[in-house]
Amino acid sequence: MKDRVKKIFSEVFEVDINEVESIEYQSVEGWDSIGHMMMISELESQFSVSIDIDDVIVISNFAECIKILMKYRG
């Protein structure tokens, strides 16, 4: 799962795949509000989950994203 999320982060935020674990919301140009929404949409589509808005807004880095995603994937 981690590798797939890394790929999503890299493609959506337009950053090198080796950097995705170190970036945070609004720390790079691509991770703005629109980028955030596109990332959520991609996660939902690829992992067949629907992420609650309360969880959407707390995802601010890669580690947090994995934690939230685990919650939905069980």
């Binding site: 919301y25 509000s33 955030h36 929404m37 959520i40 309360d54 959407v56 807004i57």
Partner: peptide, 13 residues
């Protein structure tokens, strides 16, 4: 940022 307003973010999505 949009994510500071969850209701807005939901509608935007």
């Amino acid at each position: 940022a949009l994510i500071d307003k969850p209701e807005v973010f939901r509608k935007f999505k």
